[in-house]
Design a protein around this nucleic acid. Structure first.
Length: 308
DNA sequence: GGCAAACCTGGACGC
DNA sequence: GCGTCCAGGTTTGCC
C-alpha cells in the first residue's frame, strides 16, 4: 500500500471551505465523502495514514480527490517569485491542497453559498445528501451518503427545501436540478474536458449561476485550475495586488480584473486563491489544536454523540 | 457601467 | 432577552 508522504495538510485542506461533508472523529480521524467512496485520514509523523470504504485500498481515489499529483513545492516557488502577498498564507497553511470533488455536489453546495455561512452550508449540503442520496457505508455508527444525482434532486419539493432552511435558494435548486436532469448524462464530464473559459461560459448561462459560483464549480468540481473565484474575502487580497480605484461593489468588470490579475501572477491561480481564502476565514489555531472552539463546532453532531 | 435592494435563515454581538 | 447585523451571491431595476 503506498504511503502518502506528499506535502499534504489534511486539516487545512478539509477545513478551508472548499468541501462541506468532511467530519472528524473525537480521536482525530478525518473522513471525506468522495463520490461513492469514504476516505478516512489520520495525519501522522511524516505523512498521512489513509483508508477507503466500503472498498479498501482505493489509492487512485485518494490521489484524485486530494490532487496529490500536484507538486506544492514547485507551486510555492513560482508564487514566491511573483508576489510577496501570499507568503504569510503559504506559511500558515503549508500543505493545503485544492480538492477535486463530484461536480454535482460542488454545483449545489456553492449554489447554497449565497449570503450564507460555511457552517450553514455544511448543514444544508449534508441534509441534501442524507435526504436524497443513498447510503455508502457506516463507520463507527456514522452513515455516509453519496450525493444525489440531478434526477433525484429534481423530485424535491420547494416546501421541503424551505423547511430544511434552504430559504430563497430552494426554487433555484429545483429548477437547476430539472434543467441538468434534461442535459446529456455526461454534461459535467464534457465541461471538464473543454477549455476553462468555455466551461465557465456554459455555467454562467444558467439562471442563478454567476461568475463566482461558476468559478467554484470549475475549480473544485471540474479541475480547471485557471479558475480563481473572487468572493468577499479573496476580493480584499486580490485588491492588494493591483492599483487604481476600487468600486464599492464587486461588479462584473471588477471581478474579471481581479481574477485576471490572479491568473497573471500565479501558476494555478485557483490554488493561490484558496490560500488567500484560508488566510481570511480560517484560524491557524484550529489546525494546531483540533479541540479549539473553531474546529469543535465543525464536528458532526453524530461524532459528538459518539464522544459523549 | 455602477449601485442598491430583495431574497431566507440563524449565529454573533451589543445593550 | 431582544434587536441588529451580516454571511463565500445573483438578479433586477434605476440612475
Amino acid at each position: 500500500m503506498p504511503d502518502p508522504n506528499h506535502l499534504w495538510n489534511v486539516p487545512a485542506t478539509l477545513l478551508s471551505g472548499q468541501c462541506f461533508r468532511w467530519c472528524r472523529s473525537p480521536d482525530g480521524e478525518w473522513y471525506h465523502v468522495a463520490g461513492d467512496t469514504v476516505i478516512g485520514l489520520v495525519p501522522v509523523a511524516g505523512g498521512v495514514r489513509w483508508q477507503t470504504f466500503p472498498l479498501a485500498d482505493q489509492w487512485e481515489k485518494v490521489t484524485r480527490a486530494f490532487r496529490l499529483e500536484v507538486n506544492l513545492d514547485d507551486l510555492y516557488h513560482q508564487w514566491a517569485t511573483s508576489s510577496t502577498e501570499i507568503a504569510a498564507a503559504v506559511a500558515a497553511y503549508r500543505g493545503m491542497r485544492v480538492m477535486r470533488q463530484e461536480t454535482i455536489e460542488v454545483f449545489f453546495a456553492f449554489l447554497c453559498a449565497s449570503c450564507n455561512t460555511i457552517v450553514k452550508i455544511q448543514r444544508s449540503v449534508r441534509w441534501l445528501a442524507t435526504r436524497y442520496g443513498y447510503p455508502i457505508c457506516t463507520i463507527n455508527g456514522l452513515t455516509f451518503h453519496r450525493f444525489p444525482d440531478a434526477r433525484a434532486l429534481a423530485e424535491a419539493s420547494e416546501e421541503e427545501l424551505r423547511a430544511a432552511r434552504w430559504g430563497f435558494r430552494a426554487p433555484r435548486v429545483i429548477e437547476l436540478a430539472q434543467m441538468i436532469a434534461d442535459f446529456p448524462d455526461d454534461w459535467f464530464h464534457q465541461l471538464s474536458q473543454i477549455e476553462y473559459q468555455e466551461a465557465r461560459q456554459q455555467l454562467v448561462a444558467l439562471f442563478g449561476i454567476g461568475l463566482k459560483i461558476a468559478d467554484c464549480i470549475c475549480l473544485f468540481g471540474l479541475g480547471h485550475d485557471e479558475a480563481a473565484p473572487i468572493d468577499t474575502h479573496t476580493r480584499r487580497a486580490a485588491e492588494r495586488l493591483i492599483s487604481g480605484s476600487m468600486p464599492r461593489t464587486l461588479t462584473i468588470n471588477h471581478y474579471e480584473r481581479l481574477a485576471e490579475t490572479m491568473r497573471r501572477l500565479f501558476c494555478r491561480p485557483g490554488w493561490a486563491q484558496q490560500y488567500f481564502f484560508a488566510e481570511a476565514v480560517l484560524s491557524p489555531a484550529a489546525l494546531i489544536n483540533p479541540n479549539s472552539a473553531v474546529s469543535e463546532q465543525m464536528i458532526l453532531p453524530e461524532a459528538r454523540r459518539l464522544a459523549g
